[in-house]
Simulated assay, not measured.
Amino acid sequence: MAQNENLAELSRAGVAVWLDDLSRDRIRSGNLQSLVDEHSVVGVTTNPTIFAAAISGSESYDDQLHALAVRQVSVEEALRTITAADVRDACDLLAPVAQRQPGDGRVSLEVAPGLANDTDATAAEAAHLWWLVDRPNLYIKIPATEAGLPAITTSISRGISVNVTLIFSLDRYRAVMDAYLSGLEQRLAENPEAELSGLDSVASFFVSRVDSEIDKRLDAAGADAQLKGKAGVANAQLAYQAYEEVFSSDRWRALEAKGARPQRPLWASTGVKNPDYSDTLYISELIAPGTVNTMPEKTLMAYADHGRPATPVQKSYDDAAAVLQAVRDAGIDLDDVFRVLEDEGVQKFVDSWDELTESVRTELEDKK
């Protein structure tokens, strides 16, 4: 089938189009397949909020919930079983994409967010989910907290492909890239013949949440309104500059020679939260080769309808640096912004996970 031209153009520019949503209904109805066939979608990301909405809003889970209730499984086991089933089916649907486009055709499944500050528990949960889904085109999502960084290294060293999530600052992003390279190096140190070519990673750099927090602070400071809606894109553009530096280094070239693939930047939180901004802002301004943009369906369809590319990221570095300096000059403490965003990001996913857990608990009781 013919692909939407706007999204096809995005793909030709080197941006992998992923969908930030998944549900059993989306898979069974053929909707996900149609997005692959007609809207250039080559990957899927999930999170606890997405699964909470999917399970609570559909009857497609009733039979499985009944079977789990009859077996009297724990809520935690039921949660893993249900989400793993959806992710496994989506992996199977996207397997042809993965075969023709290494690194794409992937589906992400997140470790329980309550483990974000526990390195060993995060690594153990990542290994369990990798085993449970049992598909080579899976990504395990691990948050880029300080405790998450060594869990990323451990998981990569074990041959587990990782989507690193909740990255907000350039410093933390550099630490994430280091964790990935360290994992590859550790894997080779343990077994010089270890396979690297099938191992993959993306680094999910959040965009719109940065603008939401900084815009709020700019308003409070009485700063120039022209700065609003600029920092999220500028921050991401400079992240791509850091990516280019790291993945052209001698350290990287040595791993690449062993078959390693670069850890691609993934633009996340790309749904526009301020209605005053273009609804395709975080796509048009972040076009660069070797990147991923994961979009809510509403944003995906907006770009399909009227999206247009803006200035390429590589030509925006000086302007991006100037924007962040102007934000600092307005009295905004960016380090504090990023700390707050990380803490809030973890807490939001914990809250969604708790909501999901309670929803499944209720469903299990009802299905007995």
Rank of each mutant, 00 (worst) to 15 (best):
A123K: 10
A220H: 04
G159Y: 09
D120I: 01
P136M: 08
D86W: 00
S169I: 11
K141D: 01
K228A: 00
E190T: 10
A98K: 01
A179F: 00
L196Q: 05
A116L: 12
Y139R: 07
P192F: 14
L132T: 12
L138T: 04
P102K: 07
L196K: 02
P136W: 05
R209N: 11
V133T: 04
V162S: 00
D134L: 06
R174T: 06
R187P: 13
L115T: 10
Q101R: 15
D219C: 08
G183M: 07
V176L: 00
E125C: 00
Q101P: 02
R172E: 03
V111R: 07
N137M: 07
P113M: 07
R217T: 10
R88I: 00
K216E: 12
I214H: 04
P150D: 08
P96F: 01
K216A: 15
Y180V: 05
D104I: 04
L181A: 10
L218S: 08
P192C: 11
R187W: 08
A127H: 07
D86T: 09
L199D: 00
I142F: 06
P136D: 09
R174Q: 14
R172C: 04
E190R: 15
I140P: 01
D200M: 02
A121H: 13
A175W: 01
N163D: 02
I156D: 00
A112F: 09
F206I: 06
H128P: 02
G229K: 04
A124N: 13
Y139K: 08
P113D: 09
V176N: 01
R209C: 01
A123Q: 10
P192G: 12
G222L: 02
V207H: 07
L181R: 14
A95M: 13
A85W: 06
P136Q: 10
P113K: 05
L166D: 05
V133F: 15
L227G: 04
A221M: 06
Q99S: 11
A85K: 04
M177C: 15
F206L: 09
M177P: 00
G183V: 10
V162R: 02
T153W: 03
D215W: 00
L93P: 07
C91D: 03
T119G: 04
D211P: 05
L184S: 05
N163S: 08
L218N: 12
A223H: 08
A85V: 00
L199M: 05
P192R: 12
G114W: 10
N117L: 06
Q99W: 02
S108K: 11
A194W: 09
D120P: 03
A194G: 09
A112R: 14
S182N: 15
R88W: 00
W131T: 15
D120G: 05
N191L: 05
L218R: 11
